[in-house]
Amino acid sequence: MTQAKDPLHGITLAAMLTELQAHYGWEGLAERIDIRCFKSEPSIKSSLTFLRRTPWAREKVETLFVRLRDGRG
């Protein structure tokens, strides 16, 4: 995949999470992605720590972000 076609190129995980949280709120994120860091005392910092260590969860966040940007979220 080339960088020009990669929808995530140049976008940090923090930026993705901030935009998703602003759009869906923590409750909406927890409904869409069933992970505890979105349900129990959620914060950007704790969520980033978890997502950076958990590839499957990060992939779900990236997929949701791409869907939101494409108008399918």
Results as ranks from 00 to 15, higher is better:
A14T: 07
W56P: 10
S47D: 04
R53M: 15
S47T: 15
L8G: 01
R32Y: 00
Q3M: 03
E27D: 13
H9E: 11
R72K: 15
L17V: 10
L20D: 02
R58M: 10
G73H: 02
G28Q: 11
L29M: 12
L8W: 02
T63H: 05
M16P: 01
P42E: 10
P55H: 13
V66L: 00
G73V: 04
R72M: 08
T18H: 07
L68D: 01
I35S: 08
K45S: 13
K39V: 04
V66S: 03
D34F: 03
D70N: 06
A22I: 00
H9W: 04
A4W: 00
W26P: 11
W56L: 06
T63K: 07
R72D: 10
V61I: 13
G71Y: 11
K39I: 03
K60D: 11
Q21C: 09
A30E: 08
A57P: 07
E62H: 09
G28T: 08
K5A: 08
R53V: 06
W56G: 02
T12M: 05
P7Y: 09
I44P: 07
A14E: 15
D6T: 07
I33E: 07
T2P: 03
R52A: 12
S40Q: 14
T49H: 14
F65M: 06
A15V: 05
R58Y: 00
A15F: 01
A22E: 09
R58G: 05
